[in-house]
Each structure stands twice: as structure tokens, then as C-alpha cells.
């Protein structure tokens, strides 16, 4: 019989023990690892949706555009950078470095700061609205949309006509691209 199942009293345990910062980081490494294993299903969804076609992708794209989707994506990226930086710390331990208590703590803070900086860096283009690819399609769209209010839909100028054509809702949309005639855009505006 496992000692875990016995009735013997336990010493004061996790519930009453104030974990030091290094211990919190240690369990957070595992927690983030498990969370990432689940979170990376977002990538599976993305790839399978793109392979299935425009309609399936529209559904993914809509979900990631919602607040919950954005939070999940942000959490995924932050957890990944934390797990990655702390993983490097683990590799230093594997090689026999950073075992002094003060070094373990210092490198822990370094990991937290680095993870925050990297996450912020990756989200910079999104935050400042520079994440859209300039493909031929976008250029064509830009030309077609000249004269229309670019910021009305919250998209930057080169995406306005896509947004207007696909405003009806997610998932059930036919894939409408920028090559549509300007009349369609006007119809979407009404």
C-alpha cells in the first residue's frame, strides 16, 4: 500500500507553507507546460482550418478576434516565453551552474523579466497595427477603396473593403476577397 493512502498525520504542508519565489517558479514551469500542451491546440486548429478552406479559417479567425480568443493567444505566448526562459535556466542547472541560492533567485527574476520583455516585443506589431501583410491582394484592395473612410471599421486603410464585405458574421461567410467590385462595398455600407 502506498504511503500516500495511509492515515498517518502529515507535517504542515502546501496549504500553510509560504513557498519561496524559486519554488513558485518551479511549479509554474510545470503548470505552464501543461497549459501549453493544451493551448497549442490553437495552432492545430489554425493549420487544420487553413487546410480545410476559407470558411473553416474564417471561424478560427473570428474566435481569435474575440476578447476571449485574444486573451487565450496572449496567455499562450506569455506562458510559452516563460516556459522557454525557465527551460534555459533548467539547462544551466543540468550543466551544474546557478545552484547557489542567491543565483537561483537572481536567475529566476531574470527569467520573469525576459519573458515579459519577449511577450511585449512579439505583441508590439499587433498593438501598433502593423501586423498585416502587404500582398498584391491588399494593394489591389487599397486602390479600390480609395475615397472610402478607412478607419470607420477599426481596420487600417488597406483592409477596409475586406471588413465591409464580410461584416455579416463569422463561420457562415462565403470567402469574399478584395477583388470584388466597389458596388459591393457600397452595399455593405448601407
Amino acid at each position: 500500500m502506498s504511503s500516500l493512502n495511509s492515515d498517518r498525520p502529515l507535517s504542515p504542508h502546501l496549504q500553510v507553507y509560504n513557498l519561496p519565489m524559486t519554488a513558485r517558479m518551479s511549479i509554474l514551469h510545470r503548470a505552464s507546460g501543461v497549459a501549453l500542451s493544451i493551448g497549442t491546440i490553437m495552432v492545430v486548429w489554425l493549420l487544420v482550418a487553413v487546410a480545410m478552406g476559407a470558411e473553416a479559417y474564417e471561424c478560427y479567425s473570428w474566435f481569435v478576434g474575440t476578447i476571449i480568443g485574444k486573451l487565450m493567444l496572449f496567455g499562450w505566448s506569455a506562458a510559452l516565453f516563460y516556459h522557454m526562459c525557465n527551460g534555459v535556466r533548467h539547462m544551466f542547472w543540468d550543466m551544474g551552474y546557478l545552484f547557489k541560492l542567491e543565483n537561483a533567485a537572481k536567475s529566476g527574476w531574470l527569467v520573469l523579466i525576459l519573458a515579459a520583455v519577449l511577450t511585449a516585443f512579439v505583441w508590439c506589431p499587433v498593438a501598433f497595427g502593423e501586423s498585416e501583410p502587404v500582398t498584391e491582394e491588399v494593394q489591389a484592395c487599397e486602390k479600390m477603396c480609395e475615397g472610402y473612410d478607412a478607419n470607420e471599421t477599426g481596420f487600417s486603410g488597406d483592409r477596409t473593403c475586406v471588413q465591409l464585405c464580410t461584416e455579416e458574421g463569422p463561420c457562415s461567410l462565403p470567402h469574399v476577397t478584395c477583388t470584388q467590385a466597389p458596388e459591393m462595398i457600397k452595399a455593405g455600407e448601407e
Partner: peptide, 19 residues
């Protein structure tokens, strides 16, 4: 992974054709 995170995060708002 840094490449993957960068790509997936900055893919937001792309069309099917873009991806």
C-alpha cells in the same frame, strides 16, 4: 518556438489567402 509565436500572434487579421 520564438518564430512560431511571432508568426501566430502577428497572423491575426490575415485572410485565408494571406495565410
Amino acid at each position: 518556438m520564438p518564430w512560431l509565436i511571432w508568426s501566430v500572434v502577428n497572423m491575426q487579421g490575415w485572410t485565408h489567402a494571406d495565410v
